[in-house]
């Protein structure tokens, strides 16, 4: 990710990613796109052979009994327990995008945030001979076109929204 001062003010400032389960066909394109967006090469064909292998930060699941589709992804909570749990100040709300981001330079993967997360969506990636990394949705703030999971969704089950607008236009969904 570029340093904060280099990034332009995102037009998607304060965005939320809305998941509309009725439209989801469980194709998992978002999961692949997420992993590719976190890879070095940003290309599916080469990303699958990278070391460490790029990891997705969102999961689509369906409950076995009732068939309810849900999406597990960091929700960038308004009052985020992970931010409070971090004693190093490595995980903070980004003043530009208003998303909660991890400063990988400061983070020592102490797991406090992972334990603190109420949604249990933060994961630790252990890498051989290297320091472990906390995996967390970044809202793709570094990508000008916005979140890759949203762009890749063929049925528009995932949409980007500025929360206030969403209430007005999608309240019937």
């Amino acid at each position: 990710m570029k340093p904060k001062e280099e990034r332009k003010l995102s037009t998607l400032r304060g965005m939320t990613i809305i998941f509309r389960p009725k439209l989801c066909v469980l194709c998992r394109s978002c999961e692949l796109a997420c992993a590719v967006s976190k890879s070095k090469s940003k290309n599916l064909f080469t990303a699958i052979n990278e070391k460490p292998i790029p990891q997705q930060r969102l999961y689509i699941t369906k409950t076995a009994d009732e068939g309810i589709v849900s999406q597990q992804r960091c929700e960038h909570c308004e009052t985020a327990p992970c931010v409070a749990a971090c004693s190093l100040g490595a995980i903070e709300r980004d003043p530009i995008s208003l998303s909660i981001l991890i400063d990988t330079e400061k983070c020592i993967a102490c797991m406090f945030c992972v334990d603190a997360c109420e949604k249990k969506v933060l994961k630790i990636l252990k890498i051989e001979n290297e320091a472990p990394v906390v995996l967390k949705c970044t809202h793709c703030v570094e990508i000008p076109t916005g979140p890759e999971c949203v762009r890749s969704c063929p049925t528009k089950a995932l949409v980007v929204s500025l929360a206030s607008k969403f209430v007005l236009t999608h309240s019937n969904d």
Partner: peptide
């Protein structure tokens, strides 16, 4: 985007 699973 075309399906990544299919492409692979």
């Amino acid at each position: 985007d075309q399906c990544g699973f299919g492409e692979l």
